[in-house]
Design a protein around this nucleic acid. Structure first.
Lengths: 150, 150
DNA sequence: GGTAATTGTGGGGAAAGGTGGGTAACGGTC
DNA sequence: GACCGTTACCCACCTTTCCCCACAATTACC
């Protein structure tokens, strides 16, 4: 499932964040609106239930002898929670995830292929600032982008 | 789909911009008039539905381990919205896109191959000014242009 | 040149979306 | 078993968006 768009919200003192209405609608179709949230790359990753099931399936195949990959599974699966938006369309972000992603007040939610992401506004801006700098300085990156047919 | 022409409009206080009638007609044929809008290179890019589908397909193949390209996807797909002109032929530009492209009052819409672009008039004029300067100073650029048979 | 159609701009009102807060249930701790 | 903090479920308000209708300006057509 692909998600599109960027949405800005405020996380309230109780730790609740709104989920974009179009995302909610899409998730409704697949799994009664519930989805899965975990920590990764300085933000939170959110997966629809069926995509998450596929991921868990693969995680369960990681050999327990692979020390590095096991560390990843501990981190990734350890951060995971299932969440269901309330009647207002918000979810409660657990404190551990909130602090991992640095969510305090302003929050950005981004559509991505197969997932959406929850960022602190400040971190998101840093990330984009870095990208815009690189796209100007790195001709290889610009070439990769135009190779996408854009 | 190729678009042609330059059109000037005003964006109203509600954030609505008119879409050129000829573009609307062309888009009508492909996908009930809806199209996709996103942020790129200081303006907004607009793609017909079928062209956009191709782009999304390629975006979803970008490996999530490629940090730079992931930042691009975050930016490009994160900016994307599907829009449908209203009965008057206007679309509502989301606040995030409006502020990215600096759309405040006067707006220019430009035809391009595979897309059309929405610019703030001021930025568009700067861009053209830069081009005219460069075409005089940079013989390589002039050569590239004449290689097009122009 | 006059009339009709198309195009672009403005605004009102209903609906949806997002935010804040209150209160009751729940769970863990002392 | 009482207490405290957290979570879940309400309700209410404000803002934004959507869907109309109206009118001015321009273009096309007799």
């Amino acid at each position: 499932m692909i998600f599109r768009g960027r949405f800005e919200y405020t996380i309230d003192p109780k730790g609740r964040v709104n989920i974009p209405a179009p995302f909610r609608d899409r998730l409704q179709e697949s799994a009664q609106g519930s989805f899965f949230l975990t920590n990764f790359s300085d933000c939170l990753y959110a997966f629809a239930a069926d995509d998450w099931a596929r991921i868990e399936e693969r995680l369960s195949r990681v050999p327990s002898t692979d020390r590095k990959m096991n560390a990843f599974v501990r981190f990734f699966l350890g951060g995971a929670v299932e969440v269901v938006p309330d009647k207002q369309g918000r979810i409660l972000v657990p404190p551990s995830l909130r602090s991992y992603a640095g969510l305090e007040k302003e929050v950005v939610i981004l559509g991505m292929p197969n997932r959406f992401e929850i960022w602190s506004l400040a971190r998101w801006q840093e990330e984009i600032g870095r990208f815009e700098k690189e796209v100007h300085e790195d001709p290889g990156l610009a070439r990769e982008i135009s190779a996408l047919g854009i």
